[in-house]
Computed example of a mutant assay.
Amino acid sequence: MSKKVLIVTGDAVEALEVFYPYYRCLEEDIECTIASPTKKRLQTVCHDFLEMETFTEKQAYMIDSHASLDDINPADYDGLIIPGGRAPEYVRMNKKAQEITAHFLENDKPVGVICHGMLVLTTVRKYVQGREMTAYTACRPEVEAAGATYIENHLHVDGNIVSGHAWPDLPGFMKEFFKLLNVKKEATV
């Protein structure tokens, strides 16, 4: 039986942080659903450091969400990924997004959060208090305000949560997420 992974995001999601996990799941024959506040074509963005002390943002590729958050039953999924970008800033205010996230944490299912994706976890504080996680450096105050310990490493695993700093950490992030999901790579001849 194939595993099922849910990606919760919205407009202004960091392009690499949604495309990379989505296609990696498909490569592993994992059924993957992208859900957003409304089912629609999402505008992704590209963040990078150019000539400013903070990151810049440019529009990137479009990607379809497959479902509205309201249509998601989290019990149907084995794992959750929350990418970064600016999407988590408003997705975290969605009550259904909070319920979905709480379900995965409460039931000890694999949760992968990268970059600003951690902002969604801060809205379900009782499940992250006392936990260790990393995120994009600017999210440290929110992580600590939620009662979690901010880890300065670019990749960290604490129980069922794998957290990553930013898109350059995606290879290790997905490797650790797949370990939590118990995806085994079979040798091919």
Rank of each mutant, 00 (worst) to 15 (best):
E186H: 15
E89C: 09
K184S: 10
I7G: 01
N73I: 10
D169G: 00
R131L: 06
K126C: 09
M1K: 15
T9M: 07
Y136M: 10
H47P: 02
L170D: 02
E53K: 13
A75E: 12
R92Q: 11
Y90M: 09
K185F: 07
N107E: 14
L105D: 09
S65K: 03
T56A: 15
L180S: 07
E89R: 12
L180W: 06
Y77L: 06
C32P: 00
E152Y: 12
A166G: 11
R125W: 06
D29Y: 10
G117T: 07
K95W: 08
L80Y: 00
Y61D: 12
T9I: 04
I82M: 06
D76Q: 15
P21T: 02
F173R: 07
R86P: 02
N107P: 08
D169A: 14
K58Y: 14
F49K: 11
A138N: 14
F177Y: 11
I7Q: 00
G159R: 12
V143R: 00
K126S: 12
T9N: 02
V5E: 02
Q43N: 14
C46Y: 13
V113S: 04
S163P: 02
Y61F: 15
G84P: 01
N73T: 12
I30N: 04
V189E: 14
V111L: 08
M174K: 06
V13C: 08
A138Y: 11
V18I: 14
L121N: 04
K126R: 14
I63D: 03
C115V: 01
F19Q: 04
M174R: 05
A67I: 06
V189M: 11
Y20P: 04
Y127S: 06
L105Q: 05
D71R: 10
E144I: 10
A102W: 02
E142G: 05
A187L: 13
T149R: 15
G117W: 01
Q129S: 13
S36E: 02
L6H: 00
K185A: 12
P110L: 03
P83S: 11
V143Q: 02
A102K: 11
I82Y: 00
E186R: 10
P110H: 06
K58C: 10
L26N: 08
K95R: 13
E132S: 15
H103V: 09
V91I: 11
N182D: 12
L80D: 03
E106N: 14
E27Y: 07
P141K: 09
P141R: 09
L181S: 00
L170R: 03
K185D: 09
T9C: 10
L170Y: 01
F104P: 00
M52I: 12
G85R: 01
F55M: 12
P83C: 08
S2N: 12
Q59E: 15
L170E: 02
M1L: 13
F19K: 05
Q98H: 10
K95D: 11
C46E: 10
L155R: 09
Y77G: 03
I81F: 05
M133A: 11
T188D: 13
K58I: 10
V183Q: 01
C46D: 13
